[in-house]
Amino acid sequence: MAASAEEVRKSIKSYMLVFGALAVLTVITVAASWLKVSVALGIFIALVIASVKGSLVASVFMHLTGEKATLYWVLIISAFFFILLILIPVIQNSETAHLIDQVT
């Protein structure tokens, strides 16, 4: 929101903090890719870090924390449909697996 000048000045501080956090997390995500872990765990770590970075950007830079319920509802709906989209490969692969079962 940052309606008044005072609040804007205050939030500048948090912008700088988030900037630092994002930079550090970028280094961490690169470093984590060198860890000798399984592919699945590697993907999990990278996506968790990316999600943390993404939520920092959304909640602080995009001021999502100060918004009202209407916007949250819009975003919840899109998030739900986004998850559905991401499930397409799961659905598709269950189909393929079923076909492979039939062949073998």
């Binding site: 659905i91 269950s94 189909e95 697996a97 079923h98 076909l99």
Partner: peptide, 14 residues
């Protein structure tokens, strides 16, 4: 949406 795709070899669960 996938009810348009019943004949694509979709598993029974889906």
């Amino acid at each position: 949406w996938a009810h348009h795709m019943f004949l694509t070899g979709m598993g029974t669960a889906m």
